[in-house]
Design a protein around this nucleic acid. Structure first.
Lengths: 367, 367
DNA sequence: CTGTTAGCGCTTTCAC
DNA sequence: GTGAAAGCGCTAACAG
């Protein structure tokens, strides 16, 4: 043989120019069959003589051939890709959800794209446009937002646009934008978790409980606050006395600063803290330790999200666990099988949360 | 107007079937120009009459048109995508590097794909094949490996394959597979960090230092151990006395179990621990606390990686900081601009590490 | 079982 | 400035 037959030149280092990647035509030429046969032999979904298949596979190996996913997507209009949008990959909350998305995507033979929005709704929309260009199989939007009419319209529009392109919008950890929209919603018992947490503290005799952290207007904070309020109300306590609800930030620093200021300014007028998340709790614990306030002897703390850090604080933090990984997995599973009767009816689910008991909560001291 | 002109039917909810996404032809028809003109108007790189451009843009908006990235990639053979392979997205180490990759990818108008290898070299190769199908602009492989001749051959092959496809292999936090390969390598001062850490402990008077953690054969552990050994040797101490180097795992649990067993079995024959990472350090600290050993009063601990958790341990952990984000950013930057004379010569760089001093190291007590 | 051929949606010469 | 037409690499009828 040799590559001087003129018809098709397989890539070779010798023919002068930069070697290019092999195409299906190179494989066909080398195997002595037509491109259609190569396509069939490779798809596996079509009867091909064993001998032919073997020759094709041989040629594929010799040439290090791989199909061009773009050409394939162009024909089939499926890209075998899932996209997930979150504000920040480095955050444990989001990266654990992404982990779940990846697991399921991988199980469904899909690749995953990850995009960071930095919490900017406009950037979110811009990214969805880019992903629409990619005709991804699903776009998963993760994390709380500020729930306004504009938000709902924005989501409704994106949902329809993606639907038209054969893709699916998934809202994960944020509310549904309305009825009868082509959208998959995967939530978790956010308010319920806060309700359970506050109830747990009250079961331990606590009556003076602080709600600490959360930016404020976003749905995540609103829902947790809602659960907190409901729990207190169910025992005839009011959450809305002054100084009880301390929102305004969601960082470790915010937890630290806020509790520190509180301790300097006033007497210790609370016996427990329900923190917006474990990081805020960590900050609060540091402030309490520095002020010589014993945790959990004098003040109990309950975190939210049950992150890695909860185990390593001193004392280990009791926290509300949310099903990060399962959220991601469900998002992908429901979106991809939305036609499947088994899940078609459950395109809006809410996963449960539970309290992981460690060492940061104790019976309230008698005041 | 109306859609009965027969030539081209713009997508519309009224024409019976499922509405499909608009294509460049729909836009052309609506704007009353040719597809070539639409393409030019949208690319912006070609003279088009202002009036025409406006009409095209109008049509684009009316139809919610976005280009099909696959069709574009098919012509141009560029996909505007960067891929990163890591063992686990949920790990803070990897997710912080991914964060850097995302930052730079985003700055360079690229999307990012993230794939999890679960530390399996075969899966890694399989994923690179999948990514080759996608003709991604670069494939970033992150994290230590077991450095064998097979590894080097594997990487050499992937590097050539990707190069042929116009893509670029980037090795991040792992060694170069050899000279004269089309590959970008971005490392960090791994051994140097351990050297500095051990030296810092010895400066504080410590002589009996444990190296705790690391799986063993992987390059990350080997490099850190190497730095540890070199530092001790530079002060005429030997790292290889029995019981000094405790590898075999890299989890919090491993740190806890190993130190606990050590304390039960023997007297406290060390004054400092250099931990493989912050998680191992956290485990060790818990074991020490439970045994009533004061940290840092009796035993000093130094971590590695400077993760979030380091701040929240009690005492806060002194740790070796590695430039996670910058590793990811550099990986993308160097790969994309490899032709650019400014960086063409620096396709193998090593970023520095430094010690972040907190509260877990103190002068050694006189024995 | 296998080959031929017509696109998928776009960019890019080459004409006008 | 703009249009016509030739592919990019692949899949999916449609013939044999």
């Amino acid at each position: 043989m040799g590559n001087r037959d003129g018809a098709v030149t397989p890539p070779s280092a010798e023919d002068g120019g930069t070697p290019r990647a092999a195409t299906i035509r190179d494989v066909a030429a080398r195997a002595g069959v037509s491109v259609a046969t190569v396509s069939r032999a490779l798809s596996g979904q079509y009867p091909v003589a064993n001998a032919t298949r073997a020759r094709v596979q041989r040629a594929v190996r010799d040439l290090d051939y791989v199909v061009n996913a773009h050409a394939r997507a162009l024909t089939g209009s499926k890209s075998k890709t899932i996209a997930v949008l979150l504000s920040d990959i480095a955050s444990p909350f989001y990266s654990r959800i992404a982990h779940g998305v990846e697991q399921q995507a991988s199980a469904e033979k899909r690749l995953m794209m990850v995009c960071a929005t930095h919490g900017d709704p406009e950037r979110e929309v811009g990214l969805v446009e880019m992903l629409r260009e990619q005709s991804v199989d699903a776009v998963v939007l993760v994390g709380g937002i500020v729930d306004t009419p504009e938000y709902r319209e924005r989501m409704a529009r994106l949902a329809r646009l993606l639907d038209t392109a054969g893709s699916r919008l998934v809202l994960c950890g944020r509310p549904s934008p309305g009825e009868d929209l082509p959208v998959t919603v995967v939530e978790y018992e956010n308010s319920g978790g806060a309700f359970a947490a506050a109830s747990y503290l009250m079961d331990k005799g606590h009556r003076d409980i602080l709600f600490l952290g959360g930016v404020g207007p976003d749905t995540t904070t609103q829902d947790r606050l809602d659960g907190f309020r409901r729990a207190l109300a169910s025992r005839d306590l009011s959450a809305d006395e002054p100084g009880r609800i301390l929102t305004g930030g969601n960082s470790r620093q915010f937890g630290y600063d806020t509790i520190r200021a509180r301790l300097l300014r006033e007497e210790l007028d609370f016996t427990a803290i329900l923190a917006w998340d474990d990081l805020v709790a960590a900050g609060a614990m540091t402030a309490l330790r520095e002020a010589g306030v014993d945790v959990p002897g004098r003040v109990s703390i309950l975190g939210y999200n049950d992150e890695q850090i909860a185990q390593d604080l001193v004392p280990p933090l009791t926290s509300v666990s949310i099903p990060h990984t399962e959220l991601g997995r469900s998002a992908v599973r429901l979106a991809l099988h939305r036609e499947d009767p088994a899940v078609a009816s459950s395109q809006h689910i809410t996963l449960g949360t539970h309290i992981v008991v460690r060492g940061s909560v104790r019976e309230a001291a008698r005041r």
